[in-house]
Design a protein around this nucleic acid. Structure first.
Lengths: 204, 204, 204, 204
DNA sequence: TATGAATGAGTCTTCATTCAT
DNA sequence: TATGAATGAAGACTCATTCAT
């Protein structure tokens, strides 16, 4: 639809994204990317100079997606509980679509902390988002709608609960022999469960 | 306690454990292990044949520690809530001492699913633990002490909440510039928070 | 004839052929090939991926040459004896030009039996050649020109007699101190001798 | 029966012999020998200093067996043809019992010509055997019993015809799918065939 | 814009050998 | 007599990157 970028560059980007998400930075080689794209290995470097730069482009995009969703409080005239529910569910769905994303995110910020720089650069955004969210929380706290808490704690709880099922996938598949179909049901239940856990935890 | 094992073997094991935990399997080379130990690279292979075997020895030990703690329901005459609190806190402390462990665990079961085999081997143990835990849950449910739930769900919630702080460490350190000292306080609060979240989530 | 292929690839191929024929697969290292070519060791892998693949390319070509010559019965209007003589002599000359070939051939099919696969692949060819030869033999047998025999037996006799002198070269050179010049004479005599032995062995 | 040598030394020797015959010098490692013997790897070197020396001990013994049998003309009062028949058959049986021996022999004298030194050292023996055999041939030639020929030519023919079946074993087994049982029959036929070929080739 | 060729550095692993005990 | 520990050298192979065209 949109005027597509150079075909090769685009394909390299997409293939790299898929492979990096599947197997991480270290385990994915530029050779492999080139092979899957069907292009010359030098091509990968032609567009992105280094494997590192290629990865960063992909990582930042996904990391932002993974993080910022959590701050998107709706403007609708609905209760705060409803707003939170929406956020949790949306975030959950993003992970569902990119089940390896949480893993990639934490893997990279832990093994290559300089990967965090993009967060520092956008410090203003992330930080302002966080303080904005804290303000909204404060309002609810003063209303007596929720107990004393803070945005960061809440974020971490949401992230952790939302990602756990997907990083545990191999346990379900291999140790517990749970089929894809059964797992879909478990996913649905977990989504509800996570909302329930978070909302309960916030009650005054 | 006993006169330490062969110095080199022990040092290789310890160094490897540290490096594998810090950087994962793929990113740690036997050359690096040898360099840090101060021995020949062939030495690493002398004792452990392959990098894979060396890793497995380390991984299984840690993975078991990470998992089985969650099943150690106390026999004391205390309320179920108290028992759960104890488990959560103990598990939390284990991760606190090995903050990279959760990451290593999920990294490996995701990238090398055959690493799960050790769980299969000990299938009886893990499975019986799980069903034993489920029985205890059932008793409480029938008593009306807690709402309908199951062991696996509960485990996942506990694991996820307990690990999130530690896999997020770089965010606190680098993006939020939170010092080690401040972080210690955050840790203490989080431990209480996790107990609170889990217990509230179980109320009938 | 055509403008020579990429210089490096060609040189690697030629050098590898020489070394493999001289010292066999196991005793020839890619490092050595590279050194003799005067290129980087990675270059060898660049063109042929693995030592195994490089070897196979060389082996199959030579093995086919070694085997198929034996089946090339002439169409000329000459006696069967004359035809056989031609085959033996031609096969002898091929070995003379590649004196290490018989050794390589039997070495590889003995130590790496999967090397025989190329024979299986060309099964139709080899097998049809063999049965075609058997038919021609049968005609001669029925004519009373030769005694009862079969192609396989005959092939083995021809191969063994033709190769023995060349695999025995070190004995002549080192134990019997026979010079290259003297050896040439021995070779000529042996060629006649082999024809004689085979033809006599077939008389009715 | 005989006062057995040190048990370990003996076992190393036997195991090494088996492995060297099966896989050759280069492809057999001292590690492997030690593993099969069930002893320490250093043990192998303790008794034989180097892999080379161990191999030589084994090689010389077998090489002599392989060669000298061909010279053992019987003293019985039987025709020369009968004597030759006996030699061929005995030599054939030796190879039958050690089917990899011909291969090992030619492999080593070709790839490591210094392995021939033992022949040089025992020059007197081998050479005197050869000239003795030549004398006996000369007698027969003058009698008009056989055509003009020489010992070396004859030896080579006998060796080559006798070994060919055994170095071709993989072809029979894998390409022609001939079972061990069927092969036994082929062996018997070949033995007769070889006698026939040699005797016919000598007729005046 | 694109790529085949080339390479230095590094991967894990195996090996024969030595030596102190 | 026997061996566990240790090692330097070499093995095949992969990788990210560069460069001339």
């Amino acid at each position: 639809m949109t005027k597509e970028k150079n075909n090769n560059e685009q394909m390299i980007l997409e293939t790299a994204e898929r492979l990096f998400l599947e197997k991480g930075f270290a385990m994915t080689s530029t050779t492999e990317i080139a092979r899957e794209v069907g292009c010359n290995q030098a091509m990968v470097h032609y567009y992105f100079r280094t494997k590192e730069k290629l990865f960063q482009a992909i990582f930042e995009k996904n990391a932002k997606l993974f993080i910022t969703t959590l701050f998107q409080l709706s403007n609708e005239k609905i209760s705060f509980e409803e707003k939170l529910k929406k956020i949790i569910e949306e975030h959950f769905e993003i992970i569902r679509k990119n089940p390896k994303l949480p893993f990639l995110f934490f893997n990279e910020i832990n093994t290559n902390p300089q990967r965090m720089e993009f967060l520092a650069k956008e410090n203003s955004i992330t930080n302002s988002m966080l303080s904005q969210f804290n303000k909204e929380l404060q309002v609810e706290i003063e209303k007596g709608a929720i107990r004393q808490t803070n945005a960061l704690d809440l974020m971490l709880s949401m992230i952790s609960l939302n990602m756990i099922l997907f990083i545990s996938r191999p346990i379900f598949k291999l140790a517990l022999k749970i089929s894809d179909l059964e797992f879909e049901e478990i996913i649905e239940n977990r989504k509800k469960e996570n909302v329930l856990i978070i909302l309960r935890s916030l009650r005054p």
